[in-house]
Structure formats: structure tokens, C-alpha cells
């Protein structure tokens, strides 16, 4: 019946309909393309600027391709640029960030996993309240804890050190990782744990043999989220470290804010790229998981 009807009225209407669709598509792809260009522009500017010699930057257009491609700015940013009075480039700070981010990611993810497991599969009276306490930690404006944390790190002998930063990132990272794992484990059927209990497995055995092997996706989400957050952190780095112990974001900011002499914009951009590359790489390789981390705390279900 429906078929017969649609075949009765041919050509004119269907052609105009097709045209309408085509015009409609233009209104969809047009804005999307414009936005894509706008979003890519800063990255483009960073890359081309970092590849230009300084003279070309002061003489030419900042958006065009470099006439002479040079890696001098990258070299300088990596191993020569001055951060404060030390002219070591970003390299030692890049290493600092690695030394901070790897243990912090591993610890916070591991702790979050076991917390999530307990809060879903071994619920005890008050478990929801505990979860609420942890959850608020995700939304803590860190200014509210900066002074006590600075004092405490001093008391613990961790002030200005990388282990101190690891501690801070783990402490506040637990809130996020617990949220990730809890929300993931909630969707695993409780019968799985029950079956394992009937099979004779205990608390740790169930976690290790049954739950963890099913959690690879959320482990990746958690690691990526924590990696991005901790690598990109600036507030804790600038508040709790100084000089040679700073993470890369702090060092980058120092390079950029040097005001003496002729401003080396190409070095600034190369330095910014160096600081951005690890998280960008992670994003490119595992963007899907990154998005899941972003939306984990936001949309239900």
C-alpha cells in the first residue's frame, strides 16, 4: 500500500526533494568544515611557527608555510632554552613529568579499581555514603586545599619533590578512578561474583581472576584520563615544586614568560608542542577511550 502510493507520484516531487536534501547537506557540512578549520588552526600555527627561523617570524605571515624549514627551535626548546637561570631546555622537565606521571597513573588506577570493586560487589552499610565522599573529591576546587597540602608535604619531607607530587595526584586521582571503575562494575552482573563465590573464590581471587580480566576497557580509560590530567597539571606543579623538580607544564610557562631579549616565538611554540605531544599521541591512539573518560562523570547509563 505504502509502496504503491509512493510510486504513484514520480519525478517532480522526488527531484525537488533530492535537491532539498543536497542543499540541506550543504548547511550541515559547511559549518562543520568551518569549525574544523578553526579548531585545527592553533595547532597548525604552532607547528609552522615552530619550524620557522626567527627572522621569518618577525618578517613574514604567521599562518603561512615556512619558507625555510628548520628544527633549530625544537632543538633549542628541548636542550638549550633557559628556564629561570638554568639553560637546560625542557628535557629534564620532560623526564620529571614522566617520573611523576607513571607511578601516579599506576597507583591511582589500581586503587580506583579495587575501590570500585568493593563499592559495587561487596557493598557494606554506608557504601553509598563513602562513594559520595569520594565523588565530591572529583569536583574539589584545589585552591581550597593548596595551603594545607603545602604544609603537609613539608611535614612529610616531600615538599618540592616528585614523590610529593605523585602523592598529591594519587590522592585526588582516586576520586576519579573510583568513579570510573564503580560505574563500570555496576553494569557487571552480581551473579558473576556469586558464581565465583559458589566456586570457592574469595575476595582477592574474584577480583584478580574474574573481575579484572573483564575490565581492560575501563583500565585503559582510567589510565588515559589520569595520564592526561596529571601530565597537563599546572596548579600542583607550580604550587608544590620549584626549580629543577618542576613538571614540564611549569617549565613551559617559564620559557614562554621570559621577557628578556628578542622573543623567540618559534622556541615557545616548539616547547608547547613538546609539552603537548605525549597527550596528543595518547589522544590519537586511543581517542575513543579518552572520550569515554570525559563523559563518564556526565551522562548517566
Amino acid at each position: 500500500m505504502a509502496n504503491a502510493l509512493s510510486q504513484q507520484k514520480p519525478t517532480v516531487e522526488s527531484i525537488s526533494r533530492q535537491n532539498r536534501i543536497r542543499i540541506g547537506r550543504l548547511f550541515i557540512y559547511g559549518p562543520l568544515a568551518v569549525m574544523a578549520v578553526l579548531y585545527l588552526m592553533p595547532l597548525w600555527v604552532m607547528v609552522v611557527t615552530s619550524l620557522k627561523p626567527l627572522d621569518e617570524i618577525y618578517g613574514g605571515s604567521f599562518i603561512g608555510l615556512p619558507q625555510t624549514v628548520t628544527l633549530d627551535a625544537w632543538r633549542s626548546a628541548w636542550s638549550q632554552a633557559c628556564i629561570g637561570t638554568e639553560c637546560t631546555g625542557l628535557r629534564p622537565y620532560f623526564v620529571n613529568s614522566l617520573l611523576m606521571v607513571i607511578p601516579a597513573v599506576v597507583l591511582s588506577t589500581g586503587i580506583g579499581a579495587i575501590n570500585g570493586y568493593i563499592l559495587t560487589k561487596w557493598r557494606f552499610p554506608g557504601a553509598n555514603f563513602v562513594f559520595g565522599l569520594l565523588l565530591f573529591g572529583c569536583f574539589l576546587p584545589y585552591q581550597a586545599i593548596l595551603i594545607p597540602m603545602a604544609r603537609t608535604l613539608g611535614l612529610l619531607g616531600l615538599a618540592g619533590s616528585i614523590p610529593g607530587l605523585v602523592f598529591v595526584h594519587v590522592a585526588y586521582g582516586i576520586c576519579f578512578t573510583t568513579l570510573f571503575f564503580r560505574n563500570y562494575f555496576v553494569s557487571l552482573p552480581d551473579e558473576l561474583t556469586k558464581a565465583a563465590m559458589v566456586d570457592g573464590a574469595g575476595f582477592f581471587r574474584i577480583f584478580w581472576s574474574v573481575i579484572l580480566p573483564t575490565s581492560i576497557p575501563i583500565i585503559v580509560v582510567s589510565c588515559i584520563w589520569q595520564f592526561t590530567q596529571i601530565w597537563n597539571d599546572f596548579l600542583f606543579g607550580v604550587s608544590f615544586t620549584s626549580g629543577g623538580n618542576s613538571p614540564i607544564t611549569v617549565a613551559l610557562n617559564n620559557i614562554v614568560n621570559v621577557t628578556t631579549g628578542r622573543k623567540q616565538y618559534n622556541v615557545d611554540m616548539a616547547a608547547a608542542m613538546i609539552a603537548a605531544i605525549p597527550t596528543l599521541l595518547v589522544y590519537i591512539v586511543a581517542g575513543r577511550y579518552f572520550v569515554r573518560g570525559l563523559t563518564a562523570g556526565a551522562v548517566k547509563g
Binding site: Y39, T49, Y58, Y265, T279
Partner: peptide, 30 residues
């Protein structure tokens, strides 16, 4: 692809973003 393009800034540090836009909005050269 488009989704990835719109979202990549979220993977950057605000320090990187600030540095890049400071340069873009530089009145003399941007």
C-alpha cells in the same frame, strides 16, 4: 575524524592552549 578534530583541544594542557593563543592573538605578529 571531525569529532576527533573538535575534541583534541581537551587533550592539551591549558598552558599549551594559553601559549598558542597568546601567539595567535599577538597584535604585532598574529
Amino acid at each position: 575524524f571531525l569529532r576527533a578534530v573538535y575534541l583534541y583541544p581537551m587533550a592539551l594542557s591549558f598552558i599549551v592552549t594559553g601559549t598558542a593563543w597568546k601567539w595567535i592573538m599577538n597584535p604585532g605578529l598574529g
